[in-house]
Structure formats: structure tokens, C-alpha cells
Design a protein around this nucleic acid. Structure first.
Lengths: 232, 232
DNA sequence: AAATACAATATTGTTGACAATATTGACAAC
DNA sequence: GTTGTCAATATTGTCAACAATATTGTATTT
């Protein structure tokens, strides 16, 4: 099963290509699998197995484990091994608490720095079409709209540090979030909350937008608490 | 100069001792040196040199570099090397923006979860004695008080995720923060702001405490902007 | 002297092997 | 059947050597 590692050839487009080490590729791919729950929370990660699959040495795998651990995606126990982080209820609550403030920051900065047109365009995304889709349980449409909202906000906010922190949190809670929208009524509530936030943003009312975003996160947290036995 | 690495002996107190790998020790010590500016921003970190100093192999050093990079303390350029991160003015502004919200979160949660006695005790720390010390440019006393304020708040807030994010930010801005208190008038302003925040906390007024903390951070940022040519 | 070519050196990237530790499974004692 | 040993196996921790890439120094040309 072991394939010979080919010598590294010069890239076809050396002027464009950005160097990416084996470790970087490992981090990227393992992150993807963990975030998507392709590898389940609590699952054991064996250095040997991963090294063989990606055809690299265990040293690379260990390096990748180090950064995944730092990101909170895996936990390592010395001399025992690495496990995909399993979020307990209290840790999820913590993440909701922190998110409430970081999302508030995102919405405030975006409101202050964005143009009215930006939010009008986003308001069209959160229009009656999406309302109908959500009413018909089209979660893909809803999730896509949410993603666009967040992507636009974080781009307009122009704060790489904030972006990094929020991305890291999204990575950790993505699995739970996807289940949360399944709870009857949650998606529709979220839809209306986002629409209200966008109206405040369009009107340039940063205080109100920030306040509404915080309420939105607190509400999401309340739904999580109510249905947590189904969500964990 | 090369000393033989001794075989690892069983710990004297195996029941107490928590396993700490070479990599962990490297991360801890390098972090300390970078945060304290014992290693200057922009300085080159050579794997060989560090490996020799700590008497470990380069593999360990590389692993440590991975997590330091993830924490934003160093930057690595593929095939070139690692540099201690040098914060540019715009990145510092970003960190101030994010901090404004995370510190607000800390103060709110602490207010909601702490007891009146806790804040009364802290108010004693921020009493007239400290005011006099600050007036006499006793920065050690001021910094110690600030540290106690933060330590108490973050402990009372009971949110490990928030603690981790704030610790990471403190690590990155500590050098600049220490210079900022040198600016004439800044320490005294900070002193009064902290006292006002603590009064709100003692009164259980989380809204006001949060608001004051945000103003405190915005003010600190304004001072930074005004004196940045001296601070960078 | 300035610019260039290129060998010599230094530094980072990667691997396979060995050491230390943990887990498993077979066997015996109770 | 349960429990306790202990050797066999599996897994993590570490290192030293080699490969790939970058930097430096020097001779050479202009």
C-alpha cells in the first residue's frame, strides 16, 4: 500500500505558486475533515495511519497535530495520543458567550465601514424568497444566506484579527450549528433576526445593529439550551 | 559545547508530575522571551541555534515554531525562516478593536457572576494609595494593580475560552502596553477609568461596567494613536 | 568600481530508525 | 469467573542524517 514519494519537481507555475509544505497540507485537510465531522468528535487520531495515508513521515503529522491542538480542534494527551475535540455543553455555552461579543464587534465595524448599497443588496438575499424557502425547510438556502451575511460583514469590517478569531470559533461550532437549524422554528427566527439586523445596518444605526446581533446570539444560545439533549 | 542528553529517568514524584514534553518547554520558554521582548520583534530565530541552546533536536524546535506561529508570536516564511512578529500600527489598531469587545465581555460576565465583596476588595487596591503611587510615576504599582484587576475579572468570569483569547492578545500587545503607560497622563487616566468600572461592578450595574470598559479601551487606543511614533 | 556567475556555506524541509511509554492478550492463581 | 502478572505488540517521543533551498563570498568580466 506504500507508494514511493516522488521527488519534488519544480512547480509548473513557479511565479504564481506559493510554497506550501506537507505540514500545511496536512493541517488544511485534517481541519476540513474535523470541521465537517468526517472524522467524528472523540475519534482517535493515530500518527502512523495518517502518515501512511498522506504518504509523509510521522514528523510532519506531529507538526500538524501541534497547530490543530492550538486551534482547539484536537486534544493531545502526552504519551497517549490525539483525539478530535468533543465539545461539552459548558464549553459550547462559553463559545456562545464569546461569540455574542465578537459578532457584535463584527456587525458594528461593518456598519461603520460599509455602504448603504452593501446592506441593501444583502437585504435582497434575506427577502421573501428566502422566507418561503425557510418555511419550506430549505436549510441549504438558509445556510448559504447566513454564510453570505457573515462573509460580507467580515470583509467589510476590515479586521483580520477579528476574522481569524471568528473563523476559529466557527470551525469549532459548525457541527452543532448545523444541527441547531433543524430545531423547528429556529431557522425562521434566525431569518427574521438577520433581516432586522440588516435593516439597522442599512440605516447606519450601528448601536442598534450591534444590540440586535447580541440578542440574536443570546436567542440562539437559549434554543441550544432548550434542545441540547438533541444537539450534543 | 554539546552536552550529552541524559536518558530520561523516572520522575522523582511520578504521582504528581504532569508530563511535559521537550516541545512544551520550548514553547513556554520561547513565548516568555518573545513576550518580554528579551528577543526583539523582527529578530530571526534559527532552528539550529535554539536546538543547541536547549539541547534538543531541530524537530522539537520546528514543532514549537508551529504553535508559536499559530499564536501569532512568530511568522514563518517557507524555506527562509522564522521571525518574531513585529506589530505594525494597523495590526495594533485591530487588536484594540477586538480587545474592546472581549474586555467588555469579561467585565460583563465578571459583574454578573462576582460578589459585591470581590469588587470592594479590588476597589481598595485602586484606592488613594495607588493614586499617589501613580502620581509619583510608580508604574510597577500601577501595572501590578491592573494585573490583579484582570486576573480577578477573568477568574470570576468563568469562561476558559474567553481567558484563552485575552491571554493570547495580551501576549502580543504587552510590549506596547508597557510603553503606553509611560505617556504622561495615561496611567492616571487609566487609574480613574478602572476605579469607575469597579464602582459600577460593585453596584452590580453590568451595563454601565461594560460601557465604561469599552470607553476605557477606546481611550487607550486614542492615546496610542496620538503617541504612536514614540510607541512603535 | 559595479555587475555577474558560481562554488562554498548555511539554513530549512523531510525522512527512517531507535527509545520510551502505553495497550493488549495469554496464562496462572485465587 | 475474576483478578493479577508479564511478555508481546502498538503507539508516541526523540534524534541524527540527508535532501532541498537560500545566502554568502569570491573570482571574473565589463
Amino acid at each position: 500500500m506504500k507508494s514511493k514519494k516522488p521527488l519534488k519537481l519544480a512547480s509548473v507555475r513557479p511565479e504564481i505558486r506559493e510554497a506550501e509544505s506537507d505540514t500545511d497540507r496536512l493541517v488544511t485537510e485534517l481541519r476540513r475533515r474535523i470541521v465537517s465531522h468526517e472524522i467524528a468528535p472523540g475519534a482517535r487520531l493515530r500518527e502512523n495511519q495518517i502518515a501512511e495515508e498522506f504518504d509523509v513521515s510521522r514528523g510532519r503529522v506531529r507538526e500538524a497535530f501541534g497547530v490543530l491542538e492550538e486551534r482547539g480542534l484536537i486534544e493531545r494527551i502526552p504519551n497517549k495520543g490525539a483525539l478530535v475535540t468533543r465539545l461539552e455543553a459548558d464549553r459550547i455555552e462559553e463559545l456562545f458567550e464569546v461569540r455574542e461579543f465578537l459578532e457584535a464587534a463584527m456587525v458594528r465595524l461593518a456598519t461603520e465601514r460599509g455602504t448603504r448599497e452593501t446592506w441593501e443588496r444583502l437585504l435582497n438575499v434575506f427577502g421573501d424568497d428566502l422566507a418561503e424557502a425557510v418555511a419550506g425547510n430549505d436549510f441549504d438556502a438558509y445556510m448559504a444566506a447566513i454564510r453570505e451575511f457573515r462573509g460580507t460583514c467580515i470583509a467589510v469590517a476590515e479586521n483580520e484579527t477579528l476574522k481569524g478569531l471568528l473563523d476559529s470559533i466557527y470551525d469549532r461550532v459548525q457541527g452543532m450549528t448545523r444541527r441547531l437549524v433543524l430545531v423547528p422554528g429556529r431557522a425562521m427566527a434566525g431569518f427574521h433576526q438577520h433581516r432586522d439586523i440588516l435593516i439597522a445596518m442599512r440605516d447606519g444605526d450601528a448601536d442598534r445593529a450591534e444590540q440586535l446581533r447580541r440578542e440574536n446570539l443570546r436567542d440562539a444560545r437559549a434554543w441550544f439550551q432548550k434542545y441540547q439533549s438533541y444537539l450534543l
